[in-house]
Amino acid sequence: MTARETSPFAVRTQRSGARFVATCRGEMDMTTCDLLFAAVLPGVTDTATDRVTVDLADVTFLSASGLRTLLLLLCAAHHNGKSFDLHHTQPQVRRVLDLFGFTTFKAGLVWQATMSPKGHHN
């Protein structure tokens, strides 16, 4: 069985000026994370992009693998000087993000980038 047969998942990407948006649909789990990562990484590394948004309005399930992929993309965006946001999260997806501290982790990266002395960045 393929990832599509076990968990229909799709990512549609769009660039608009300096903004890159990935709109996801379906279940984000270990069988679909590579697709998500491959779809969003070009927006993270594009020098013309300064904001990356992942729209999760139609994501019905988020596994630990999906969370890990979002964290990897968040870290990559931070490393490349981009803002990274999740929009339109469903309650069941928001709960996973909150339980594992996604928002707190993101806030820590933002604080580090804006408030810590410039000489201490790696």
Rank of each mutant, 00 (worst) to 15 (best):
V44L: 03
V21N: 13
C75D: 10
C24L: 13
R51H: 15
M30D: 13
L74C: 14
F105Q: 11
H121W: 05
M115Y: 09
P8M: 15
C33I: 10
G66Q: 12
H87K: 12
Q92M: 10
F100R: 00
F61Q: 08
F20T: 03
L35S: 11
H78M: 01
T104C: 02
P91Y: 05
M115C: 13
T32L: 08
T69Q: 12
A39G: 09
G81W: 08
C75P: 00
A10W: 00
L74D: 02
F61Y: 14
G66Y: 09
P117I: 00
R94C: 03
S7C: 13
R12E: 14
T31H: 15
M28F: 09
T2W: 01
R12W: 03
V21D: 14
S63Q: 01
T60G: 01
L56M: 14
T89W: 10
A57G: 06
Q90N: 00
M30C: 09
T104P: 04
F102E: 13
V44S: 12
L73A: 04
D85S: 15
P91A: 06
V93H: 08
R68W: 03
T32V: 02
V54H: 05
H79P: 00
F9H: 00
R19E: 13
S83P: 05
A107Q: 09
M1S: 15
G17S: 08
S16W: 02
H88V: 11
G43W: 09
V52M: 09
T32M: 03
T104V: 12
A10K: 03
T47A: 00
T23K: 10
F102G: 07
L97C: 04
T114Y: 00
Q112S: 05
W111K: 14
A107V: 05
L41N: 02
L36V: 05
R25T: 11
A10P: 07
T45L: 02
A57Q: 08
V11E: 13
A39S: 15
R19H: 08
R15F: 05
T60V: 11
L35N: 07
D98R: 08
